[in-house]
Amino acid sequence: MKQSFSQNMFILKELVIKGIRLKYRRSYLGILWSLIEPLLTMIVLTVVFGTLMGVHDKTFPVFILTGRLLFGCFSQTTNNSLKSIRANAPMIKKVYVLKILYPLSGIIFNYIIFMISLVVLAIVAVVLGVYPTVYLLQIIVPLINLFLLCTGVGLILSTIGVFFRDMEYLWNVLLMLVMYTCAIFYKPERLLKSRYGIVLKGNPLYCVISNFRSCIFGEVMNYKYLIYSFSFSVVCIIIGFVMFKKCEDRFILNI
């Protein structure tokens, strides 16, 4: 049974709304947690790593928060995508809905929550003296880049997760590796100049975070990072879509 574009968009919208509601179900503060949680994490990381590394820059919390927010978005969207098909198994077995809508809805609703959390970043930045400049107009580019990266990786994981359930645990380990190579709580300048700099430059999420920080701190984006991370994201989307469409008819046998 084929569905029209408008029907699919309506279903996708409802799945996104359902995802947001379920995420904060039984939470007294509800969606306010999307503002409070990154703020509390920023304070802890600033105290711990700022003290350990002897950082006295008053804008260091903004540096940490930018990395924390973007990594958090990537982590949440990919984890949700990884579990999306199995989590919606009862609905998939009973109702015909384009299966790709399930991982897409998880990516979109987590991305919406991430966009809301940017309010915290704006407030913290102004309070600590990081004021908007003309370079802030570039910010739409890394934000789009982040969404594309989450979508591409998410589609790949949503397919693998159906057939290889251990991927859920393996991905959590890989995410830890991604986190440490994103320079979230340490300044990357010294590492970039060493022979290990390729580890950061090879991480597309670090490239997105670096360009996002450039927009916040009033600098020109690194266009090599931009080209690499965009290219990586588009390739992931193509691979993820092909994998998903090729395997989706077998999902019902494995959920």
Rank of each mutant, 00 (worst) to 15 (best):
M1D: 08
S4D: 04
S6C: 01
N8F: 01
I11E: 05
K13C: 03
L15P: 02
V16I: 13
V16C: 05
K18A: 09
K23G: 13
Y24M: 14
I31S: 11
I31N: 10
S34H: 10
I36R: 02
L39Y: 06
L40D: 03
T41N: 06
T41M: 11
M42A: 08
I43V: 15
V44H: 01
G50E: 11
G50D: 12
T51E: 10
D57Y: 14
P61A: 12
T66A: 15
G67A: 05
L69P: 01
F71L: 02
T78Q: 10
N79F: 08
K83I: 11
S84F: 08
A87W: 07
N88F: 10
P90W: 11
V97G: 03
K99Q: 10
L101I: 05
P103Q: 03
P103F: 05
I108M: 00
F109S: 11
N110H: 15
Y111G: 08
Y111F: 15
M115K: 07
L118Q: 12
V120T: 15
V124Q: 11
A125S: 15
V127F: 14
P132D: 14
P132I: 15
L136A: 04
L137E: 02
L143C: 05
L143F: 03
L146C: 09
L146G: 05
F147T: 00
L148M: 13
L149P: 08
T151Y: 10
L155K: 07
I156H: 04
L157H: 02
I160P: 07
G161S: 08
L170P: 02
N172F: 01
L174I: 09
M179V: 01
Y180E: 00
Y180F: 00
Y180W: 00
C182N: 08
A183M: 13
S194F: 08
G197W: 09
K201R: 15
V208H: 00
N211K: 03
N211P: 02
F212L: 00
F212N: 01
E219F: 12
M221H: 03
N222E: 09
Y223F: 15
L226S: 06
S231Y: 07
S231F: 11
F232P: 05
S233D: 09
V234T: 09
V235W: 11
V242N: 06
F244R: 03
F244P: 04
K245C: 06
C247W: 08
R250P: 01
F251P: 01
